[in-house]
Design a protein around this nucleic acid. Structure first.
Length: 571
RNA sequence: CGGGGCGUAGCGCAGUUUGGCUAGCGCGCCUGCCUUGGGAGCAGGAGGUCGGAGGUUCAAAUCCUCUCGCCCCGACCA
């Protein structure tokens, strides 16, 4: 492609709409333009990259035995009603009323639709196992789209769904997808890690998230850098905190803490650090109030709490309920004298002489100790991991960092096949629900997260596999016939060689502009026809990533480029 | 959905507090000259319903009311 014949609108200045590096660079390098909040147009360069990613995904899916389908973006509401997810999606669902007055949704995901197809078309174990996938735009009315294509209202997702006759089959299908995901992200050149994620109410095996470590990621990763344990924040376990010496229980003491409600306020007022304090949170579960005790510097993990309490989800009690139960204003709850069920986090169970609310307004208690002052009904692990916590497997200090979720593999079981009655007859003629798995990849996120990890002050640094072009040919002076001739020859020669994608910067621009643009759009290999050529017929080859330069004779350019492509494709 | 901010040329911004002549600057764009190894220089030029509607006023980018859009923080995120 010749630069003058395509559309690559690069920008010198950063657009004000962008906050993070990948977003800025995608706009500056002319990959995307925003159309409205959460919706982006892919320009020619962006489209090339998008297609690179999609091709890799498609190849690896096919290799893993998955079958591609293409499903509508329009979905009737009744399928979502059937599965019970109409309420789950709620306002995230984008709907419209058609001319006949029927309400239709734009698919936020396709579990229901794919299950609907399978229940209609698959009736026998002989047709299973089967994994279907598609690459399609999904629509969600995100409350707050941000970070460019990292969180947008419409985004391209590869979603696959496996159907098996039993759990053993599901495990095989799952493994095939898991391995395919590794190959996909490897081929893209992404630095990624796999973390255990919560599998929700299904129980059973864990799911896995594929994450790109990044400070702009919206997910929190808990990792042990020693033994390799890794999980997301919802899922991560901690090693129990060892008990303190219980020999010296100080006498219980009530203190006046006027209008000091939060841990920070009480901590500052009493000069007691938050990890010597216990906060008491009143939850309602199955219609019954429960007190949850957490150390002052810890946060409740509602996913874990819900599991501990049973399947019924737990919600924080409202102000009136709290005041009725504790007899005090919000902010002064404590376990002493409280006559409801008390669940204590493990970290609380080993504390002694701690500070809590007194269940009297403007009062706290010092030197509280369980057993002596109150009784714990149940000790459980209901908090998030924080800095300083130890690995549940090897007791090393856990690393807390952020990441961007680019893929998720998930064992669904029979949740949707039950709800939507996707059944088949097994080899003994018994009707069974298909055992499902679902597997998603955020295609746009691969691009953004790659750029987050691979850029410098001059621009994007593409891997060979994602680069919109492998090579950019830069004739420094397009008005010099000899240079231009040589450039055109090299361009033709490389272009006609299968597998080499080449861009010719034929613009009549000053060299600085062309070099800056080439760096900004991140083409891995630059071929420069300039001073060295007019002087002694030498062509310069420069690598974007390392900045290394090589001088070669015109007739050797092709073989040299091919060897670079060979090397870079293995990197 | 709560809190904050912004909307002036394709992009980045000044001007708004304290209303006043033809609305400015940098980049980009067009023409010409010059230049050709890291976003050159000179000269000339095009491009604006100042987000929109209504109001106050002799006079509105500037003040008032309503409205639309966008960004940031938080909540939310199968």
């Amino acid at each position: 492609m010749k630069w003058s014949q395509t559309l690559i609108p690069t920008l010198k200045e950063s657009p004000s709409e962008a906050e993070i590096d990948s977003h800025k660079l995608m706009i500056r390098a002319g990959l995307i333009r925003r159309i409205t909040a959460g919706a982006y147009a892919y320009l020619p360069l962006g489209t090339l990259v998008l297609n690179k990613v999609i091709n890799i995904v498609r190849e690896e899916m096919n290799k893993a035995g998955a079958i591609e389908v293409f499903l509508p973006a329009l979905q009737p509401l009744n399928l979502l009603e059937e599965s019970g997810r109409l309420n789950v999606f709620g306002d995230d669902l984008i709907t419209f009323v058609d001319r006949h007055g029927k309400t239709t949704a734009l698919c936020p995901t396709h579990e229901e639709m794919i299950t609907d197809i399978v229940r209609n078309e698959v009736n026998s174990y002989r047709q299973l196992p089967m994994t279907l996938y598609q690459i399609q735009t999904k629509f969600r009315d995100e409350t707050r789209p941000r970070f460019g294509v990292l969180r947008s209202k419409e985004f391209i997702m590869k979603d696959a769904y496996s159907f098996d006759v039993d759990y053993e089959g599901l495990n095989k299908s799952y493994k095939l997808m898991y391995d395919a995901y590794c190959r996909i992200f490897d081929r893209c050149g992404l630095d990624y890690i796999v973390v255990e994620a919560d599998s929700g109410a299904m129980g059973g095996d864990v799911s896995h998230e594929f994450m790109v470590p990044s400070g702009v990621g919206e997910d929190i990763l808990i990792r042990c850098l020693k033994c390799g344990y890794s999980a997301n924040r919802e899922r991560a376990e901690v090693a129990p905190i060892p008990g303190e010496n219980r020999s010296s229980l100080n006498p219980l003491k009530e203190v006046h803490t006027p209008a000091k409600r939060t841990i920070q306020e009480v901590s500052a007022f009493l000069k007691v650090s938050p990890d010597r304090m216990v906060k008491t949170m009143i939850y309602i579960s199955n219609g019954q109030p429960v007190a949850v005790l957490l150390r002052g510097d810890h946060e409740v993990n509602e996913t874990k709490l819900t599991k501990v309490l049973g399947l019924e989800n737990a919600v924080l009690a409202d102000q009136n309920t709290i005041e009725h139960i504790t007899g005090a204003h919000v902010g002064f709850a404590g376990p002493v004298g409280l006559n409801i069920k008390i669940i204590a986090d493990q970290a609380v169970s080993v504390l002694q002489n701690f500070v809590t609310g007194a269940n009297k307004s403007d009062m706290h208690l010092l030197n509280v100790n369980h057993e002596r002052d109150f009784k714990i009904d149940r000790i459980a692990n209901v908090r998030y991991v924080t800095k300083g916590d130890k690995c549940p497997k090897c007791n090393n200090v856990l690393d807390v960092s952020q990441g961007i979720e680019i893929g998720h593999v998930f064992k669904l079981g029979t949740k949707y096949s039950d709800a939507l009655r996707a059944k088949f007859l097994d080899n003994s003629g018994v009707e069974k629900s298909a055992i499902m798995g679902c597997y998603g990849i955020g295609v746009n996120r691969i691009i953004a997260s790659f750029i987050e990890r691979s850029h410098d002050e001059n621009g994007i640094i593409w891997s060979l596999s994602l680069a919109p072009y492998h090579v950019i040919v830069i004739p420094v002076n397009v008005n010099d016939p000899d240079s231009m001739n040589a450039a055109n020859n090299i361009y033709d020669e490389l272009k006609n060689d299968a597998g080499i994608e080449v861009l010719l910067d034929d613009r009549d621009q000053r060299p600085g502009v062309k070099f800056k643009d080439a760096d900004l759009i991140g083409i891995p290999i630059k071929i420069i026809i300039g001073k060295k050529f007019t002087e002694n017929k030498e062509i310069e080859i420069k690598l974007r990533k390392t900045g290394e330069t090589f001088l070669v004779k015109p007739e050797d350019v092709k073989s040299k480029v091919k060897s670079f492509i060979d090397t870079l494709s293995k990197a």
